[in-house]
Amino acid sequence: MELIGQGMEGAVYDLGDGRVRKIWFDRRPDDVRPLKEFLDELPALPFRTPRIREIAAGADGQAVHDEHLLTGTALNESGLTESEALDAFVAVVEALGPTTPGPASKALPVLNQPFWRDDLSWGEALAALVRRRAAESHRHLRRDVTDFDELLEDLTTRLATVEPGRLSVVHGDICQPNLLMDGPRTAAVIDWGFYSTAGDNTFDAALAAGFFDMYGPDAQRLDNLLLDRFEALGHDRRRMYLYRAAYAITTATIYDADAGDGHYRWCVGNLNRLPS
């Protein structure tokens, strides 16, 4: 087996026969089955998506599963022009807009926590997640974000009133390494499950604009350019800012509980730049 990728939750190996194997660090087989059901439920899209085959337990009880190998070159390594790369981002978000999520989309945890409840709307479920995650990061965010307590109250109040016209399948992590390209065409979209759910397609637009270039010298220019493009396609700009703030609070310390990493600084920067 050849190691081809490793993230926070597991390592992925190429088996050399058209399959890859993921070995999870902490999840058990029962933890991964909701993701398999979600992926099996995804509708036909203009790009390939992962499909988990059998799920087994490793030597230490951790989940191990095989998938078909999805071919393509990660967008950040593809050599495409800026214009082509931006077009690919917009096309992926727009392809998800007309999708209809099924029951597995609502059963899937978000950030490893239950998300949907029958008595909550999309906006209310997101507001509840923001409140839970804010409690875990409060001491850091209160220190680094101007008037954080007031921002949190305003944000959760506004989120709870959001009523999108329809629910779509949300990927939640549309970033350059997760788009596998065949020339200028997106061949596959990978790494579902971190923030995937049934939700508002504008949520994916808001995040994709920020994720295109998170840390480079042109990050703000590219972010604004994509926000402009998504707004022209009908995504409300104020709602995109609202969702960006929700994402920033819910993931601020997801990778480092001590708030010492670049992702935390990116989240804080977004929260401090929110328009009034």
Score class of each variant (00 low, 15 high):
residue 4 I to D: 12
residue 7 G to H: 03
residue 10 G to H: 08
residue 13 Y to P: 09
residue 15 L to H: 07
residue 15 L to Y: 05
residue 15 L to C: 12
residue 16 G to Q: 14
residue 17 D to S: 09
residue 18 G to D: 05
residue 22 K to Y: 14
residue 22 K to D: 12
residue 23 I to G: 05
residue 28 R to K: 15
residue 28 R to S: 12
residue 30 D to C: 08
residue 31 D to H: 07
residue 31 D to G: 11
residue 33 R to W: 02
residue 34 P to A: 04
residue 37 E to H: 05
residue 39 L to H: 11
residue 44 A to R: 14
residue 44 A to L: 06
residue 47 F to G: 03
residue 48 R to K: 11
residue 53 R to P: 06
residue 56 A to M: 11
residue 58 G to K: 03
residue 61 G to P: 08
residue 64 V to P: 06
residue 68 H to G: 13
residue 68 H to A: 15
residue 68 H to C: 09
residue 70 L to H: 07
residue 74 A to R: 15
residue 74 A to W: 06
residue 74 A to L: 05
residue 76 N to H: 15
residue 77 E to A: 14
residue 78 S to T: 11
residue 82 E to L: 15
residue 82 E to Y: 11
residue 85 A to F: 01
residue 86 L to M: 13
residue 86 L to T: 13
residue 88 A to T: 11
residue 93 V to P: 02
residue 94 E to M: 13
residue 95 A to Q: 06
residue 97 G to K: 10
residue 102 G to A: 03
residue 104 A to P: 01
residue 107 A to D: 05
residue 108 L to F: 05
residue 110 V to T: 02
residue 114 P to V: 10
residue 119 D to H: 14
residue 119 D to A: 14
residue 129 L to G: 06
residue 133 R to V: 06
residue 133 R to S: 10
residue 136 E to G: 10
residue 137 S to F: 00
residue 138 H to K: 15
residue 140 H to M: 01
residue 140 H to G: 02
residue 142 R to N: 11
residue 146 T to P: 04
residue 151 L to T: 01
residue 151 L to R: 12
residue 152 L to H: 10
residue 154 D to C: 14
residue 155 L to E: 01
residue 156 T to W: 05
residue 157 T to K: 06
residue 158 R to Y: 02
residue 159 L to W: 00
residue 159 L to S: 00
residue 162 V to M: 09
residue 162 V to T: 12
residue 165 G to V: 01
residue 165 G to P: 05
residue 166 R to T: 07
residue 166 R to Q: 10
residue 171 H to V: 02
residue 172 G to S: 03
residue 172 G to E: 00
residue 172 G to V: 02
residue 175 C to Q: 15
residue 175 C to R: 14
residue 185 R to V: 05
residue 186 T to Q: 09
residue 189 V to T: 02
residue 190 I to P: 13
residue 194 F to K: 11
residue 195 Y to G: 05
residue 200 D to H: 11
residue 206 A to G: 00
residue 209 A to V: 01
residue 213 D to K: 14
residue 213 D to R: 13
residue 215 Y to K: 11
residue 216 G to Q: 02
residue 216 G to V: 01
residue 217 P to C: 05
residue 219 A to S: 15
residue 222 L to H: 08
residue 223 D to S: 07
residue 223 D to C: 14
residue 226 L to C: 10
residue 227 L to I: 10
residue 228 D to E: 15
residue 228 D to C: 09
residue 229 R to I: 00
residue 232 A to W: 06
residue 232 A to I: 06
residue 232 A to M: 11
residue 233 L to C: 09
residue 238 R to Q: 14
residue 239 R to Q: 12
residue 239 R to T: 15
residue 243 Y to K: 04
residue 246 A to M: 00
residue 250 T to V: 11
residue 251 T to D: 07
residue 253 T to L: 08
residue 254 I to Y: 15
residue 256 D to L: 04
residue 256 D to T: 07
residue 257 A to H: 08
residue 259 A to M: 12
residue 260 G to W: 12
residue 261 D to T: 03
residue 263 H to S: 09
residue 263 H to C: 07
residue 264 Y to Q: 09
residue 269 G to D: 13
residue 272 N to W: 08
residue 273 R to F: 03
residue 274 L to A: 06
residue 274 L to N: 04
residue 276 S to M: 12
